[in-house]
């Protein structure tokens, strides 16, 4: 796309020769939106179902997990060593179909969804040859990866 083909919304209402190229632009934006919406929907449905399965499995195997008294629950709500918090622990727990590992797996899918969304948008903009939004989304993705590795960024 060359510089003079770039159109502003003043043309949204316009009916000159450029409106055809604008219509194409809008179509591209709408297509990108529906693809990204799909990624988010799949991520959400997948993680929600896995988390619910995990709760059910935990409950079926050890009803006490969500049933014990306040005092016993206190240990559950303050400890941090009993449940898996590394990827390898999650996968070995999954192999044994442990409820907590299934829940954590569902949560990991939830956490990965927004990051995947950025990656997928970068690919879509790449296909659409969008010369502004390819660098923008790639940059955001790199910052995310960096902050993930540095382990420092806040919410």
């Amino acid at each position: 796309m060359s510089e003079n083909e770039v159109v502003g919304t003043s043309d949204l209402t316009g009916n000159d020769a450029r409106s055809e190229s604008l219509k194409k632009q809008l179509e591209k934006i709408r297509r990108a939106e529906s693809l990204i919406s799909g990624v988010l929907r799949i991520g959400v449905l997948l993680s929600l179902s896995i988390v619910v399965i995990g709760i059910t499995v935990s409950f079926a195997r050890k009803p006490g997990v969500y049933l014990h008294t306040n005092a016993a629950n206190k240990a559950l709500l303050t400890s941090s060593s009993t449940y898996p918090h590394s990827l390898s622990a999650v996968f070995s727990g999954l192999a044994h179909f442990q409820g907590d590992a299934v829940i954590v797996f569902g949560l990991i899918i939830l956490l990965a969804t927004p990051i995947l969304r950025v990656l997928v948008s970068a690919v879509i903009f790449g296909f659409q040859k969008d010369r502004y939004f390819v660098p923008i989304t790639v940059f955001v993705f790199l910052v995310l990866v960096t902050s993930f590795l540095l382990g420092k960024a806040g919410g």
């Binding site: 559950l76 918090h85 829940i103 955001v140 993930f148 919410g155």
Partner: peptide, 30 residues
């Protein structure tokens, strides 16, 4: 969601995402 996801890995590695607490939160909020 994007900025929160970037920092979530740290909380996860530190063991601060307790599945039994986070599961009802995730399901309810979704």
């Amino acid at each position: 969601g994007v900025t929160a996801a970037a920092s979530a890995g740290v909380y996860f590695a530190r063991g601060e995402i307790d599945p039994f607490v986070a599961a009802p939160v995730a399901a309810g909020v979704l």
